[in-house]
């Protein structure tokens, strides 16, 4: 038992380190000033913590605007993913229709298709449609990336809600729509919020499509990639930290509900 426990603890430590060390490095380099970046080994807690770098970074021309665009795109992506993903997930969970399984696999396959190959035709298409370099255009692309998760997570959410509850609602006076609104949605609400936030995070973190599909109206990730490539390291770290913090925070908030994605019942 003790060796098994030891291996288990070791696994926990390795996994934690896997996630935490890079975050710590970025945070330390962003907050610790120029001297710390060069220093090695780095002190566990930086001696001179300061928000100066972050403050200077935020004052850089365009960062505030890119931050706002990132937010705009992520919110749009979140709305689209939920609006399209919930009905699709409901259909998968409640109805058996021809090609349901194929549909499931196809949804996942969209993620297997490399965005790189799509980049040029998409750009051309977006220019024609007038979507190029707009928040809406990038949000649509991000929705395509986030939608598979939204569909599959909400399908397993709805599957976990007993059909009898819906039938009871129908018997006691609900239409199909009002039963979904009054009974299914309240029960699925925590999971739906998790799905929405996950879509937000996917969009927030995405850099490739955002870089390809925009020129002047860039999201923060695309902007950092383009503008900060030649900036001093400390500012690059500050940008990285600014990107990580919201996604880590959000994922932390919804961590339990993301298990639904693997079909593990969560409460």
């Amino acid at each position: 038992m003790t060796t098994r426990r030891g291996i288990y603890l070791l696994g926990v430590v390795v996994l934690c380190a896997w996630v935490l060390v890079p975050i710590w490095l970025i945070a330390a380099n962003a907050l610790g000033g120029q001297a710390l970046i060069a220093a090695w080994p780095k002190p566990l807690v930086p001696t001179q913590m300061s928000l100066d770098t972050l403050r200077v970074f935020l004052a850089i021309e365009g960062v505030g605007r890119a931050l706002w665009i990132s937010f705009e795109v992520a919110v749009l992506c979140m709305v689209f993913s939920v609006a399209l993903g919930l009905p699709a997930g409901y259909a998968l969970a409640r109805y058996s229709f021809r090609g349901a399984n194929v549909f499931r696999v196809m949804i996942l396959l969209t993620r297997a298709f490399p965005v790189g190959i799509l980049a040029l035709p998409l750009t051309v298409g977006f220019i024609r449609l007038g979507l190029y370099d707009t928040a809406l255009g990038v949000a649509l692309m991000h929705t395509a990336l986030a939608l598979p998760f939204a569909v599959l997570v909400s399908a397993s959410l709805f599957q976990a809600i007993p059909r009898e509850l819906e039938e009871a609602a129908w018997v006691f006076g609900c239409t199909r729509l009002s039963a979904a609104w009054r009974v299914v949605l309240p029960l699925a609400a925590p999971g739906v919020v998790a799905t929405a936030i996950f879509a937000f995070v996917i969009s927030w973190n995405e850099v490739f499509a955002a870089s390809v599909l925009s020129a002047r109206n860039r999201t923060l990730t695309a902007y950092l990639l383009a503008v900060l490539a030649d900036s001093p390291l400390t500012y690059q770290f500050a940008g990285g930290l600014l990107l990580i913090v919201p996604s880590v925070g959000f994922i932390f908030l919804v961590r339990r509900h993301l298990f639904a994605m693997w079909g593990i019942a969560s409460r």
Binding site: P162, E167, A168, W170, V171, C174, T175
Partner: peptide, 20 residues
Amino acid sequence: LPPRARGLAMVFQNYAVFPH
């Protein structure tokens, strides 16, 4: 007619009491 228009009530095997 749909269930709601039939003027009946039902008790289900697993109760189907709304948990929320």
